[in-house]
C-alpha cells in the first residue's frame, strides 16, 4: 500500500480560516482534515497518517508550541512536516517554534498561494 501523500491536517480554532484553508488546499488536490484543539490534533496524528500539518500557534488549552514539542518528542512523529501558522509574527514565537523544530512558517495575514506553496514543498518532498 503506497503511503498517502496528500492528507493534510489543519489545526486551527477559527472556523472561517479553516473553511478557506480547506477550500484552497482541496483545489490543490489535498485531502484536508481539521481539528480545533491541540490534544485532539495529537491524537489524530498518532492514529492516522498525514503528509503535513498546518498548526496555529494560538490554540485554546494546549497551545501550538506545546503540540509541536509533543510531536518532536514522539519518535514516530518526529519527522512529520509541520508548518506553523502564527498571528503574532513576533520574533519570540518564531524563535521558540524554530528551536523546537518547525519546518516552515506562515504569518497571518497570508496569501493563499503562499500556503499552498509551503504545503507543496513539505508534503510532496
Amino acid at each position: 500500500m503506497p503511503l498517502p501523500t496528500n492528507r493534510v491536517l489543519v489545526v486551527e480554532d477559527e472556523p472561517n480560516i479553516v473553511e478557506s484553508l480547506r477550500f484552497i488546499l482541496e483545489r490543490a488536490d489535498y485531502d484536508v482534515h481539521s481539528v480545533a484543539d491541540g490534544v485532539l490534533a495529537l491524537n489524530r496524528m498518532r492514529n492516522e497518517t498525514f503528509s503535513a500539518i498546518v498548526l496555529d500557534i494560538m490554540l485554546p488549552g494546549m497551545n501550538g508550541l506545546d503540540v509541536l514539542r509533543a510531536v518532536r518528542e514522539d519518535q514516530r512523529l518526529a519527522d512529520l512536516p509541520v508548518i506553523v501558522l502564527t498571528a503574532k509574527g513576533q520574533a519570540q514565537d518564531r524563535r521558540a517554534a524554530e528551536a523546537i523544530g518547525a519546518d516552515a512558517f506562515i504569518t497571518k495575514p497570508y496569501s493563499n498561494a503562499e500556503v499552498v506553496e509551503r504545503v507543496d514543498e513539505l508534503a510532496r518532498r
Binding site: E14, L21, A87, P109, Y110, S111
Partner: peptide, 19 residues
C-alpha cells in the same frame, strides 16, 4: 490576544477575498 484576533480576522478576510 487582541492583536492575535485582529490579525486572524484580517487573515480570514484576505484569504476569503482571494478565493
Amino acid at each position: 490576544e487582541t492583536v492575535h484576533e485582529m490579525l486572524t480576522s484580517a487573515a480570514s478576510m484576505s484569504s476569503a477575498a482571494e478565493i
